[in-house]
Design a protein around this nucleic acid. Structure first.
Lengths: 147, 147
DNA sequence: CGTCAACTATTGCTATGCTAACAAATCACT
DNA sequence: AGTGATTTGTTAGCATAGCAATAGTTGACG
């Protein structure tokens, strides 16, 4: 209790920081007239890097729940950005593919995402990045261990 | 683009880390039979440290939207943990106060929150904390600046 | 004073997250 | 083959988040 300046605040700081990043990115996407939410972008980005991925696999790599993935894919399909194709050999599965329209939106969004990323990281350097990864991974892993 | 190991990942890492902290805390609260969500806890904690605070002020200190605060207070009031009292001299405002029951829940939740906090921070030290604050604040502030 | 601007809280709408329950399909194992 | 367990995706319910719009008050200022 003694030596951590204000250990109490770390949850709060992470929370407000991620909110800020999300809202900045969302605002920028809106301003550019790109019809994607931040989470929809995350899926679009993954799908276009791994065409035909299944929904469960998508859930795993994006750390989202299967129900969440179902709904985001529903929305993306409604917008005509991706399509579900029946997987051969397993009638439970779908393979998710980008449409031409989806690939086009991805091209439009990509530089914006890169810009936000760059802007957020700012003048932080490689050593900061190493420290950052160390701390985040450490916190994350502390919750995977037994008592 | 060259020197940040995988700069692309920092958004993702923050996002998954905060989710992990939240879910661990929520699970612990549930296991102890405490009828609070993480966000409800955040408000309860603030209110009990600042009895009579207004909803807008609560929104500001917790970095939540006024509508979100309205709805969380609704839930807390329904559970009998807090109460809205009309502010003297301004009929638009409410002063939010803890009830006896609310203070009791807070006492139960407090050590759990402290334990989760301790567990998450683990073996990280004071220097890590300084770095952590530096990096998070830096990212946050980078989004408040003009171009 | 009187009007218009600003403030406080609320409501509605959409999206996401988490849990639980479920249907359909597939797998494992006898 | 046949039964039970597992996997895949979906649906439903609740909580949170953000945005827009609004009602009721209060404040500022000519």
């Amino acid at each position: 209790m003694t030596h951590h300046s204000d250990q109490r605040a770390y949850f709060f700081k992470i929370d407000t920081t991620i909110k800020k990043i999300r809202s900045s990115l969302q605002k920028m996407l809106n301003e550019q007239g790109i019809d994607l939410t931040v989470d929809q972008w995350v899926l679009v980005d993954h799908i276009s890097r791994d065409e035909g991925i299944s929904q469960n696999a998508l859930a795993e790599v994006t750390y989202k729940d299967p129900p969440t993935v179902t709904r985001i894919i529903d929305l993306l399909e409604k917008k005509g950005f991706v399509e579900r194709r029946n997987a051969v050999g397993d009638r439970r599965k779908f393979n998710i593919h980008m449409t031409k329209k989806g690939l086009q939106v991805r091209e439009e969004a990509f530089p914006i995402v890169a810009e936000i990323r760059r802007k957020g990281w700012g003048e932080l350097n490689e050593a900061d990045y190493q420290q950052f990864v160390h701390i985040m991974d450490s916190i994350y892993n502390n919750f995977n261990e037994k008592e």
